[in-house]
């Protein structure tokens, strides 16, 4: 179980064995095929970027591997086990945590409480333990608080712990979502456009943060529109277009892949940002 204070060195980027594999995943809504027979893997300790133009099926893909949707066919194998028909909270407990494109914090809980909810996912104290304040409750409360402190500190939110989530600034809310997700002790952290709405300085800070999270031994899946950010931070990239995988490789390979250039990079950056705004 990866811990923040992990002492084992992270494996060299992109060389670890597969942590998660998509095997021919297809996702169909009525007549629309959102994801079409997509296969790729995420390796332990890497930062994988998932990119593609709008409507390419990135978020659907993402939802399939976090258990929000069941794939119509194909399967997702995580840590050697197929996700199958597991419930969403069970998938989280297996070790997949995520953030949301449109921030979904518990707005009326404090920042600390948000993180504690995440930390609780590995706790076991139920009604009896809580009512009688048995040792298990006390031990877990202490552990949760310690973890919340660490994570808030890591995300530069140390001073905001007692503020309600909805009173945090936009950037702070995004970081709090990451802290909450990390609190569930994921093996794989999935970030859905974490830099949306950020200015370049904030994006730079976020990139550093993502790297730091990875260097602590986490594996990261990153969906992002901003090409600079993706190229700068990821170890490998998977490109989707119209629900199909059209390329996979290192940022260098992707930059020079004709199919990708045709599909995506041909569009210049300004236009991309415009599209983003229109979301």
């Amino acid at each position: 179980m990866p811990d923040l204070a992990k002492d084992t060195a992270a494996p060299a980027p992109g060389t670890g064995e597969a942590l998660l594999r998509l095997e021919g995943v297809t996702l169909r809504f009525g007549g629309v095929v959102a994801v079409n027979d997509v296969s790729f893997e995420i390796r332990r300790g890497e930062i994988l970027g998932l990119i593609g133009p709008n409507g390419a099926g990135k978020t659907s893909c993402f939802n399939a591997l976090t258990g929000v949707y069941q794939p119509t066919s194909g399967q997702v194998v995580f840590d050697g086990r197929p996700l199958g028909r597991r419930k969403r909270y069970q998938i989280n407990r297996l070790g997949i945590a995520r953030t949301f494109q449109n921030i979904r914090l518990f707005q009326n809980m404090t920042a600390r409480e948000n993180v504690l909810v995440g930390a609780d996912s590995h706790h076991r104290a139920g009604v009896l333990n809580s009512l009688l304040r048995l040792p298990l409750h006390r031990r877990e409360t202490a552990e949760g608080n310690r973890r919340a402190d660490e994570l808030l500190e890591l995300m530069d939110l140390g001073h905001r712990g007692d503020d309600l989530a909805r009173n945090l600034s936009y950037g702070e809310q995004r970081r709090l979502e990451i802290a909450r997700a990390l609190a569930t002790r994921p093996k794989l952290l999935c970030l859905d456009e974490p830099a949306a709405g950020f200015n370049p300085v904030e994006k730079q800070r976020l990139m550093d943060l993502i790297r730091r999270v990875r260097d602590m031994g986490n594996t990261v899946l990153l969906i992002e529109h901003d090409m600079r950010l993706v190229m700068g931070v990821t170890d490998r990239i998977v490109v989707l277009e119209f629900g199909k995988k059209i390329a996979e490789g290192t940022p260098e390979q992707i930059r020079n892949d004709p199919a990708v250039i045709a599909a995506y990079l041909g569009v210049d950056d300004d236009q991309l940002t415009d599209e983003e705004e229109n979301l």
């Binding site: 419930k87 989280n92 518990f106 707005q107 996912s121």
Partner: peptide
Amino acid sequence: RVGRAWEATREDEEAAELNG
């Protein structure tokens, strides 16, 4: 833990579920 889980569920059920 129980009280927090209730509060989180009321606030955003799906987000709570995906956070375990």
